[in-house]
Amino acid sequence: MAPHSYSIAPVQSELNMTLYNKEVYGGRGTNGVTTLVNRGPIGTTWVFSWPVTDGPAGADANVVGHLQGTGVQVATYPDYMWHYSLGLVFGQGSRFNGSTLQIQGTSKINGEWSIVGGTGELAMAKGTVRRTEVSYTGNIRISELNIHVLYTPM
């Protein structure tokens, strides 16, 4: 009888990190556009590519990736709510260069999204992203992203 070969699945890893994103709604450096403006109370849609840094905005913060995706307004009462479909694409200068986290969920500006998948080193990711507004000045919003993820390194 021939021996059977098998492999043992890798163990999951846990990662907690804090990153920051910068949203520019108009003027120089705009990084999101409205693609559909609904005349009703919901349905406005926008597409964006927000830079993600390893520290708050400033000269010493390094861009480690981009949050790229869409947002659709799904409610106005009792609060403005948006449904997001996002990819956090890690780039050069990041420990996870070339990997992604797939993120989605319905939330307010200060809310939580689900991590529903990942690629590269972050394969089979699941977890949460808590987004908290740090500042909103003029047409620029800076948000803190507290990321907690379990993944299976490949």
Rank of each mutant, 00 (worst) to 15 (best):
Q12E: 14
I8Y: 02
S107M: 14
N16G: 05
G65D: 07
T18L: 01
P153Q: 01
W113G: 02
R39F: 14
V74P: 05
S107E: 11
V89K: 12
V134N: 05
T53A: 10
N21W: 15
I8F: 07
T70D: 10
M124R: 12
S5D: 08
F96Y: 13
N16F: 06
T34W: 09
V129K: 02
A2S: 13
N21F: 15
V11F: 05
K22A: 06
G98M: 07
P78N: 01
I142T: 11
G117Y: 00
T152E: 12
L150H: 10
L36D: 04
P51K: 04
G91H: 00
T70K: 09
N38E: 06
R39L: 15
T44V: 08
L150W: 07
T137M: 09
G65Y: 06
W46E: 05
S99P: 09
G91V: 04
G111N: 09
V74T: 15
G117N: 00
A61K: 06
A125C: 02
Y77F: 15
S94P: 08
Y151A: 00
G55H: 05
V134T: 06
V116I: 13
E112V: 14
E112G: 08
V52Q: 05
L67A: 14
G29A: 02
K22N: 12
N31A: 00
P56C: 02
V134C: 04
R28N: 11
Y77Q: 15
V33I: 13
Q92G: 12
G93R: 00
G29K: 00
V89C: 09
V11M: 09
Y136Q: 11
G98Q: 07
S99R: 09
A2W: 04
T53L: 09
R95E: 14
P78H: 01
N31E: 01
V11S: 11
Y25W: 13
M124N: 12
G65C: 06
R131V: 15
A57Y: 05
G118P: 06
T152V: 13
G93Y: 00
R130C: 10
T18Y: 01
L122R: 04
G98V: 07
G111I: 08
G29W: 01
L122D: 04
E121L: 15
P56D: 01
V134Q: 11
A2K: 11
N146I: 05
G98F: 08
G55I: 02
P51M: 04
Y25Q: 14
A125F: 00
V64R: 13
G120N: 02
T70I: 15
T35K: 03
H4P: 12
V33M: 09
